[in-house]
């Protein structure tokens, strides 16, 4: 069984977002790039499964759509334990554009389980995994919080509104995963970092694709007014303010 993990290259979570002077684009200068946190959990689970079932899981491949500047993030995924990497040379674009690029690179390749994080921490789109599944005409399960493999059977837990479901499906399948799939992301070891340098990283040319949406501009979120501090000896004051001033109680 071969597992593919889709990786989004995103600014570090603590990045202060800066914009171009016309507010039409984000200024990425000086930004530290990381593996999208949900994709990192997906990768961690893939590595755990390969370690637990070495006879069953042959290979873990990571893929991203992006420019050459995304390669250090792919190398980091290789250092964590992925076996090889694919970069579709297609930077920019919306979720439809990105999913089309990934589908183009993946179609016909022998991937049995494709893992995507449920969201990326930059555009928070929650879209690429489902789109990829539809473009490949594979089954998909979203909001997956646990994954186990038993022979050819793929066993997952999915979150549903106000509960959870145990689901069984079979390969090929796209699983869109969230918190719980793994708890602590895998951190590269020194040896992992050394071997990652020589692991294969294939660059695939972009496919012809058009996006379905485009960014028009950005705004900084409105500033919060200062926090009103309340004396811990005077809780009635808090209740009074929530009731009469904020009117939320």
């Amino acid at each position: 069984m071969n597992i593919l993990v889709c990786i989004s290259n995103v600014p570090d979570t603590t990045t202060r977002i800066k914009y171009s002077a016309d507010m039409k684009s984000v200024d990425y200068s000086g930004v530290q790039w990381i593996i999208n946190p949900w994709d990192e959990l997906a990768l961690t689970r893939a590595i755990e499964l390969k370690e637990a079932h070495p006879a069953l899981v042959q290979k873990i491949t990571v893929i991203t759509a992006g420019g050459a500047d995304a390669e250090p993030t792919l190398r980091k995924a290789l250092a964590c334990g992925a076996d090889d990497a694919i970069r579709v040379d297609a930077p920019g674009g919306d979720s439809l554009f990105t999913a089309t690029q990934l589908a183009h690179a993946v179609k016909g390749e022998p991937f049995d389980v494709i893992l995507c994080g449920i969201e990326s921490s930059d555009y928070n789109g929650s879209a690429v995994g489902g789109m990829l599944a539809e473009l490949l005409d594979y089954n998909s399960v979203s909001a997956v919080s646990s994954l186990n493999l038993e022979g050819n059977s793929v066993k997952v837990t999915r979150e549903i509104d106000g509960g959870k479901q145990s689901i069984e499906t079979s390969a090929p399948v796209v699983l869109i995963v969230q918190k719980g799939i793994a708890i602590n992301p895998r951190i590269p070891s020194m040896r992992g970092i050394m071997t990652a340098r020589t692991k294969p990283l294939k660059v695939v040319a972009a496919a012809a694709a058009s996006p379905g949406s485009k960014v028009v501009g950005y705004q900084a979120p409105p500033q919060k007014s200062a926090c009103k501090m309340i004396d811990p000896e005077n809780i009635d004051e808090l209740v009074h303010l929530l009731h009469t001033e904020a009117r939320v109680i």
Binding site: N124, G125, E134
Partner: peptide, 24 residues
């Protein structure tokens, strides 16, 4: 809705309709 179900379905629906999707 941008909830667990909407996140699961909207992207697939968008591809089927050749539609752009903006979520949340």
């Amino acid at each position: 809705a941008h909830n667990v179900t909407g996140k699961a379905l909207a992207p697939r629906v968008a591809v089927r309709l050749n539609a752009g999707l903006v979520s949340a």
